[in-house]
Amino acid sequence: MTSPKHQELPPELEAPLARAKKLEWLTASYVLSVLVVMYLALGQSQAMKTAWADDMLGLVAPVSFLLTTRFVRRNATPEFPYGYHRAATIGYLTGSAALLIIGTLLFFDGVKALASGERPSIGLAVVLGYPIWAGYLMIAALIWSTVPSYFLGKAKLPLAEQLHDKVLYADADTNRADWQMGTATIFSIIAIGWGWWWADAAISLVLSGSIILDGYKNLKQAVFDLMNQTPKTVSRQDDDPIVEKVAGLLCGLDWVREVKIRMREEGHILYGEAFIIARNTDNILAKLHQASADTHRLDWRIKDFVLAVVDELPE
């Protein structure tokens, strides 16, 4: 049986990958600029602090994407015979755990601020010699943290689907969430200006709640991935139709009587086995060779699919 190279990506996906890398570099530098701008405008607002922490987490996905795209396409070695694809899942696991922990800390911060009636003070800022209310400066910083985010997220979604990259998908999702978070934070600054000091802590609670939910959802998925859950679509909602496609192909072969398929995802790549009960075993090597080649041709993500002829299907 052939031993396919792990680093191969179909030529038509090279361009989207390059574009995705460029977008992630752009995102990483953009998030850094947001962090600096927000830090300079950061005052006593609890919602502002929550938004800042969330922006910092926005670095996790681009950095893990850029790091893992370097590693995952390396060839398998005797030490790591299945290749490096799972590096992507590990990056995903740590990122989502960070999300969950920070969300929880911010939630308790918000509860404390609300319970003890902390009133955020926002005073004067001097911009180029002009004294203005610092709240306006914060709003400007927040607009910088939202509008570009929205467009970045929108540009990444189709690439994530094409490349079947979950880290990229999660990142696009984060960018979309940032847009809503930033807007909510702008409202909380406006509310502080109206004298509604409680609105700030309340909004920060809602925001930290959404970080917690995001973290939980992603952590769960990362754990499922590591536990070899059956392949899912990149948006993680449905079973990946590819399993059905492979089953259809193998069942349609005239020498196959029964077949059982097991597949798992490692990063972008699909691994798996098909156990086949053959009608007859004449010329079986050539038939298996042909079936294996056909299966691998179905989709670029099928890299290491093993066909085994057995007497009895496993449980």
């Binding site: 902390e118 955020p120 003070s121 005073g123 004067l124 004294p131 209310w133 709240g135 502080i192």
Partner: peptide
Amino acid sequence: PGENAWLLALET
């Protein structure tokens, strides 16, 4: 804490 009009007037 949180008396932002007063704070702003004083700072100005």
